[in-house]
Design a binder for these strands. Structure first.
Lengths: 222, 222
DNA sequence: TTCAACAATGAGTATTTCTTTCATGGTAAC
DNA sequence: GTTACCATGAAAGAAATACTCATTGTTGAA
């Protein structure tokens, strides 16, 4: 699971980062609206948490812009005001949930988990199921009809990304961003290798990983 | 056995700590709701004792939050009010028991022991049974099909932790926290040593300890 | 109190597994 | 057919884990 937090209060982001670490969740922090938009345009997140009051560009603007671009990552809005107005505004714009500041971390993560687990993704608890494969995201074990594979960390992250959104095409850059993190200098050939490894492991299932030449990869049903 | 007490009255926590020491129970104390939540999110406890009235964040909130996150550690709620309302509220939220302040230490520990021994963990009295091994947590004796091992304290704590929740993955950090206690500077290599020792002892049973590379360990059926 | 036995720990090495690089061959698109 | 992109295998390099051993600490019996 990878989350983006767009929030300028350092106290809050520090706490969130710590809570993510405990729960073994990958997260990125953007400190202002501009940076936030840039990050959020990258469809590699399971959930985006957007503060409304932000330097440079408001959360509402960010939300509008990413939805305009067809990014449908679940978004949870944070607002200090808590007025009906804001709620309506946020939800109308395509936010999936909102939370009023000050919020309890408990509630935030509960809602994040709920968003990350929406039924369209075939996620049951800690395992993702698609066709005849299932993947346990805690143990990094891939279960197919007749075999079970322990995946390495990188393999697991790539598979999770593809499996959570079947038929969505991910670019190589998006995969690099999500799996290796930003500003890492990694040879894209590595992706090809891991995809190759994964393909070997799902070879006799109903699931396949397609290459979209010049773009990236997508996972789907055979 | 390791217990978390979330309670702000120093008089009470001091007494509890002392009583734990006498009974050879490991315990941690959190003095306010915020700290309590952070501790409680760590699934290393056998029982969590939660005061309802707490600074910063109430016990109810903590309970809600940890349940939302899938932490199913048994929780005992403490309340000064003792109203039906509070009882119901606590139990509805997923508390497993409650106790009205002022309580007798004897009753508290009786209930703690009861919670720590709930049937869903294969715990009968003071021994834990899983597949063809059983482990006496008082005597630290591991019983397998054809042998009996007296375990050292550390070995025993690790085995107890894994055995109480088969198939749950524990990170090295969680094991350090539970077995060595917080803020101890202990070489993680020690965990490997004890896991190695334990593996040798359960080698011809139906139980195995798996390494989840990059994450930690989990115990399960072969 | 002393000694023996055992437990805990740190350091270091060995081993396994993962990650990345490199080289080469294949394939789709133009 | 040429070119750019992708697939694949082998192997070097890096990292995580397993195991060994020596030292120190603890405990309990004599």
């Amino acid at each position: 699971m990878r989350i983006l937090f767009v929030e300028d209060e350092k106290k809050i982001t520090d706490a969130l980062q710590e809570l993510c670490k405990i729960q073994n969740i990958d997260c990125d922090i953007a400190n202002d609206g501009e940076e936030g938009l840039l990050f959020a345009l990258n469809p590699i997140y399971d959930v985006i948490v957007l503060d409304i009051m932000l330097p440079i560009k408001s959360g509402i603007e960010i939300l509008q812009q990413i939805r305009d671009q067809g990014i449908n990552t679940p978004v949870l809005m944070l607002t200090a005001k808590g007025t009906i107005d804001d709620k309506v505004k946020g939800l109308d714009m395509g936010a999936d949930d909102y939370l009023i500041k000050p919020f309890s971390a408990k509630e935030l993560f509960a809602r994040i988990r709920a968003l990350g687990r929406r039924p369209d993704h075939g996620i049951k608890g800690e395992t993702i199921v698609f066709e005849d494969v299932s993947f346990n995201t805690k143990k990094n074990i891939l279960q197919t009809v007749n075999k079970e594979f322990k995946l390495s960390v990188k393999e697991a992250k790539i598979l999770e990304m593809l499996l959570k959104r079947p038929n969505q095409v991910f670019t190589r850059e998006q995969i690099l961003d999500r799996v290796w993190g930003f500003d890492k200098e990694v040879n894209e050939n590595n992706i090809e290798i891991y995809v190759h490894n994964l393909r070997k492991k799902i070879i006799d299932t109903q699931v396949k990983i397609d290459t979209i030449r010049g773009v990236g990869y997508t996972l789907g049903k055979k």
